[in-house]
C-alpha cells in the first residue's frame, strides 16, 4: 500500500512539474504570438521609414522612425559609455588585482546588488543628476541613465568571462616581459572577446527595451534627435503613448511598434547567442 501511494505521489508531482514547465513556456509563446498577430495587420513600410506626420496621433500618416532611431542612438550611446567604464572595471577585477582579493569579492557583491535595482530608480536618480547639472530631458540624459542601468550587468557578465581566462595564459604574457596593461588589453581581452561582445549585445538589448529609466530623462519628440542635448523618442515610450490615445488606428500602430521592438530584441539576443559560439578564432583553447 505504502509503495503504491509513493508511486502515485511520484507520478502526480512529475505530472505537475511537466505541466508547470509547459505553462511557463506557453506563456512565452502566447506573448510572442499575441504581439505578432496584433502587430502584423498594422505593419507597413511607413512605420519604419517615416517620422510622425502632422495629425499622426489622430490617425493620420507617418511612422515611428523617430522612436526607432532614438532608441538605437540612446542604447548605442549608453552601451558605448558603459563599455568605456565597465571594461576597465572588469579588467581591473581580473587582471590587475590579486586573485581572490577581498576587494574584488566586495565589488562583485556590490554589482550583483546594483543589478537588482529597478530601472525607475535609475530614472529618478538620472533625473536628480540632470537637475544638478542643469540639463533638460535630452538624448544625453537618457544615455547617462541607461548607461548606469546597464553598467552593473555588463561588468558582471564581462567579469564572468574574464574569470575563465586561464591564469597560465596571463603568466606566459608576463614571462615575456609584458606589463599588466599590455597583458590585459592584448591577451585577456582577446581571449575573452566573444564573451565580452555577447555581454555588450545583451546590455544593448536591455537598453533598447527599457522605458522606466528614460521616461524622466530622455523626453519625447516627433523628430529624429539632431544633437545630444535635444530630447529623443524611444520605442517603448512610443508604444506607451500611442496606446494611451483612444483612436483605433493609433493603437494599432502601438501594436505594430511593439512588434518592431520585439523583433529587434529577438534579433539582438539571437546575434549574441551566435556570436558567443562563432567568434572564437583568436581564442586559445
Amino acid at each position: 500500500m505504502a509503495r503504491d501511494r509513493r508511486f502515485a505521489e511520484e507520478k502526480l508531482f512529475r505530472g505537475l512539474m511537466i505541466l508547470a514547465t509547459l505553462l511557463i513556456l506557453s506563456s512565452l509563446l502566447l506573448i510572442l504570438l499575441t504581439v505578432l498577430f496584433k502587430g502584423l495587420p498594422h505593419m507597413s513600410l511607413d512605420m519604419v521609414t517615416k517620422t510622425p506626420q502632422g495629425g499622426y496621433y489622430l490617425g493620420k500618416g507617418g511612422g515611428v522612425l523617430n522612436a526607432i532611431v532614438g532608441s538605437l542612438y540612446l542604447a548605442g550611446g549608453a552601451t558605448l559609455l558603459a563599455v568605456l567604464f565597465g571594461l576597465p572595471v572588469a579588467l581591473y577585477m581580473n587582471v590587475y588585482s590579486r586573485p581572490g582579493a577581498r576587494f574584488v569579492g566586495a565589488c562583485r557583491f556590490s554589482f550583483d546588488v546594483l543589478n537588482g535595482v529597478p530601472s525607475i530608480v535609475f530614472g529618478a536618480f538620472g533625473f536628480t543628476i540632470m537637475i544638478f547639472f542643469g540639463l533638460r530631458a535630452s538624448l544625453l540624459g537618457g544615455i547617462i541613465a541607461i548607461a548606469l542601468l546597464i553598467l552593473p550587468m555588463m561588468v558582471r557578465s564581462m567579469d564572468e568571462v574574464l574569470r575563465l581566462v586561464p591564469r597560465e595564459l596571463l603568466d606566459a604574457s608576463y614571462a615575456l616581459g609584458a606589463t599588466r596593461w599590455e597583458t590585459a588589453l592584448k591577451v585577456a581581452v582577446r581571449q575573452a572577446l566573444p564573451g565580452i561582445l555577447t555581454a555588450v549585445l545583451i546590455a544593448f538589448g536591455r537598453g533598447i527595451g527599457d522605458a522606466a529609466a528614460v521616461i524622466f530623462t530622455a523626453g519625447f519628440t516627433d523628430s529624429i534627435p539632431g544633437s545630444l542635448l535635444r530630447p529623443a523618442a524611444t520605442l517603448p515610450l512610443a508604444i506607451f503613448f500611442q496606446l494611451g490615445v483612444p483612436i483605433p488606428e493609433v493603437q494599432g500602430r502601438a501594436y505594430a511598434s511593439a512588434l518592431i521592438l520585439t523583433v529587434l530584441i529577438l534579433i539582438i539576443s539571437l546575434a549574441a547567442r551566435l556570436l558567443s559560439r562563432r567568434l572564437t578564432r583568436h581564442v586559445v583553447k
Partner: peptide, 18 residues
C-alpha cells in the same frame, strides 16, 4: 527562458492589456 527574460516590459504591458 532567457528570451522571456529579454522581452521588454512594455511588451509585457501590451500583452497584458490585450
Amino acid at each position: 527562458i532567457d528570451i522571456l527574460a529579454g522581452i521588454p516590459s512594455v511588451v509585457f504591458g501590451v500583452w497584458g492589456m490585450l
